[in-house]
Lab assay of single mutants.
Amino acid sequence: MATDAALRRLLRLHRTEIAVAVDSAFPLLHALADHDVVPEDKFQETLHLKEKEGCPQAFHALLSWLLTQDSTAILDFWRVLFKDYNLERYGRLQPILDSFPKDVDLSQPRKGRKPPAVPKALVPPPRLPTKRKASEEARAAAPAALTPRGTASPGSQLKAKPPKKPESSAEQQRLPLGNGIQTMSASVQRAVAMSSGDVPGARGAVEGILIQQVFESGGSKKCIQVGGEFYTPSKFEDSGSGKNKARSSSGPKPLVRAKGAQGAAPGGGEARLGQQGSVPAPLALPSDPQLHQKNEDECAVCRDGGELICCDGCPRAFHLACLSPPLREIPSGTWRCSSCLQATVQEVQPRAEEPRPQEPPVETPLPPGLRSAGEEVRGPPGEPLAGMDTTLVYKHLPAPPSAAPLPGLDSSALHPLLCVGPEGQQNLAPGARCGVCGDGTDVLRCTHCAAAFHWRCHFPAGTSRPGTGLRCRSCSGDVTPAPVEGVLAPSPARLAPGPAKDDTASHEPALH
């Protein structure tokens, strides 16, 4: 009773807030009518008042009428009001819900409408889902798969039609296919003929059939049928067999079959498995989609049935006599038709004709302190090069084509190399640097090759510096006499390219 009084008091307290929050009759008014909170006449009256005075006034009048009803109607109103779709449509209802007392429970059932309790003993237990329907569909599909699609060729003596089998029958139906081979029951999904010589313990000319048996419980189990008994694959494991010639990621696949039913060829011909030897223990289905393919039931050349050999690369099948050149017997292992072999060759040939990528240039590290003349020119003028003790990398590039010797140069053309002071002394051009340390401070000019250098860098042994005729380390061993002091540049003949010694390969005349 306390809860009923509290709900009535809360409705009177929030009546105006609810009326202002509800700006549309749908969905709240319609939901109240659906849950029998508002009768039909009051529903029509509220809609009429909404058209006349507006939605807030109409709902305020409806809530005032609701306060005169019993506690069950008020409880049902609060339940409908706080439904998710009403809270989404009328956003101003959320503060009312947040301020609702926590001790007021809106989930209690309506009085007088409590459903009768059902004894637990009368409640049926839930049924577990079964796979009976899938099993029945598999039974119905198996006879259809064994139905012949056409008439065999005159040369083929193997013609068999499976008798119709009602689904209610649980007995196995067997077809006489000759040579002791028996087909599987209607619940078998796949059958492959297997030679009895590969099964340990088999006697006589009995041949087993590799099947997948579907049981009534819905589970499946792969086994071997020899005669009327089934054997699990673990009985046929043979770890010492060295003649297993397995197909790549293979499961067994029928390579020879008669049109209309699988079996042995007439005249004692023995149908073979995809792999010879003992049956392997793992009978998992292969991951290669080509091995799941269903080959055609007629020859791809003459479009006739009979004894066919199936290609492992495509769905086509052929007569042995229709092949070019014809085959006398079934080859062992994987067999592919000429079209598949030709496609494989065409895929391999473009790969062989692809040009080989060019090898990157060989990189040879230079000892610290040495650099090529090109690196000396590329440096920024007026700045010493940083990191001189790091190992430089010199790339061996292809030799350029031989060019004509340089033409003779006048001494005026070499004027930018040297600057003559007032006393006739050779001065260095701006930006000249030593080729060893890279520093341009207090550098000297070689009178023979006009290269800038430090005496301490080229002659670290402490050799005394002569007063005139300074030469760098590369030119100090040259027998050519030094030019007379005061000459602007060496003779043009000295600039012609010539053979250089091994220790002077990195010091070429550089223009500054």
Results as ranks from 00 to 15, higher is better:
T3A: 11
A5V: 14
R8Y: 00
R9W: 05
T16K: 01
V20E: 00
A21W: 00
V22D: 00
D23M: 03
F26K: 00
H30M: 08
D34Y: 01
V38T: 05
E40V: 02
D41N: 15
K42A: 00
Q44F: 15
K52Q: 00
E53M: 05
E53C: 15
Q57I: 07
A58M: 01
H60Q: 03
L63Y: 00
T68H: 04
A73G: 00
L75A: 03
R79S: 04
L81S: 02
L81N: 15
Y85N: 00
Y85S: 02
L87N: 05
R89V: 00
R89H: 10
G91D: 00
L93K: 00
L93D: 01
P95D: 04
P95W: 05
P95G: 10
D98I: 04
F100S: 02
F100R: 00
K102I: 15
D103F: 07
V104N: 00
S107M: 13
Q108F: 05
K111A: 15
K111F: 06
G112M: 04
A117V: 03
R127Y: 04
P129T: 12
T130G: 12
T130I: 11
T130S: 14
R132N: 00
R132Y: 03
K133E: 02
S135H: 15
E136C: 13
A138I: 11
A138Y: 14
R139S: 08
R139W: 15
R139K: 14
R139N: 05
A140M: 03
A142K: 03
A145S: 14
A152I: 07
A152T: 14
S156M: 08
A160H: 05
P163F: 09
K165A: 01
E167F: 15
A170L: 03
Q172F: 15
R174M: 03
P176L: 15
L177T: 03
G178D: 05
N179P: 15
I181R: 06
Q182D: 03
Q182N: 15
M184V: 04
S187P: 05
S187D: 06
R190A: 08
A193I: 03
M194F: 04
S196A: 05
A202S: 08
G204R: 14
A205F: 03
E207V: 01
V214A: 06
E216L: 14
E216H: 04
G218H: 10
G219A: 12
K222C: 00
Q225L: 01
E229L: 02
F230L: 07
T232S: 12
P233A: 11
P233V: 04
K235Y: 10
E237A: 11
R247W: 04
S249V: 12
S249N: 05
P252V: 14
K253M: 10
L255G: 13
V256I: 05
V256N: 06
R257M: 05
A258T: 09
Q262G: 14
Q262I: 10
A265V: 11
G267N: 08
G269H: 10
A271L: 13
